[in-house]
Nucleic acid binder design. Structure first.
Lengths: 146, 146
DNA sequence: TTCATTGCAAAACGTTTGCATGTAT
DNA sequence: ATACATGCAAACGTTTTGCAATGAA
């Protein structure tokens, strides 16, 4: 008979799968990111978990490790602080950010991979392109341009 | 008979055209960026012009003003410090960065504007997209992936 | 003359690191 | 028991700011 596990199963597995020890702080951090289903700024995370789960230095260290392992994705949304998203249950996608209110919309079907292949094909100095940054900026309907 | 001007004419005009006073430091800074024809990191600029043209605080202030006016373009190449490019004599383009040696290749014909229009058309919350960040990362031929 | 611009120094900010303690394996 | 993970505090590098002096118009 199998031991019954909780909703964090996928998180625990992703940690073990990358050779990380399963600690309360890491599970809580990943759970927070997974539940959010949108990019959280480091400051969001620090604020939410201050005193509860992890020290700020540990949050930075952990997010860095998790990003290297591909369990989270780090992105720069031009806000001055890094944002992170939980990746295991989401396909690769980009974001559209309102530079007034900060609302973020996912862009699921973006043909950037084709562009990337074209870029690699046309490049003189590069053959190996392994990643890209792509974010769009605008004003959402609630924040008409000034 | 017209007064003969120097090679900085375009620079002086772009400054005047945006209501800036024409100072030696600004002309030198723009000349440096124009001549480079590639993104320079702020630290490149500080190093090059230390003691000669401008104080570091003034460089930051000036680049920020020039970016707001559209005379230079600020970009984040994931190096930890902002990069700037002189824009008046170049069409909009993106970059391909070697994450080993830092070499930067321009990408001139990138179909991103079409993507941007599509993104705007498909968005629920946004109608107005006014800019995007797009940079590609890879290894150049001199820096084979480890 | 007037107001934008600059230098200098200090501060603010996000992020990283050293080290002793704690904890998952 | 061992190596990895964490908290705390201090350091770090980048960027911003206050203010008095300078310089372009």
């Amino acid at each position: 008979m199998e031991t019954s596990h909780t909703k964090e199963d996928a998180i625990v597995e992703s940690l073990r799968g990358s050779g990380f020890r399963v600690t309360r702080g890491r599970v809580a951090l990943l759970h927070l990111l997974k539940k959010a289903r949108k990019p959280l700024s480091i400051q969001d995370i620090v604020r939410t978990s201050r005193g509860k789960t992890m020290d700020q230095a540990t949050i930075y260290r952990t997010l860095s490790d998790l990003a290297n392992a591909g369990i989270v994705h780090r992105m720069d949304l031009n806000t001055g602080t890094a944002h992170f998203e939980y990746t295991p249950d989401r396909p690769h996608h980009h974001h559209l950010v309102c530079t007034d209110c900060g609302v973020i919309e996912d862009i699921e079907d973006c043909a950037i991979e084709k562009l990337e292949k074209n870029v690699a094909r046309n490049s003189k100095q590069f053959t190996n392109i392994y990643s890209h940054n792509l974010e769009f900026f605008g004003h959402c309907k609630k924040c008409p341009a000034a």
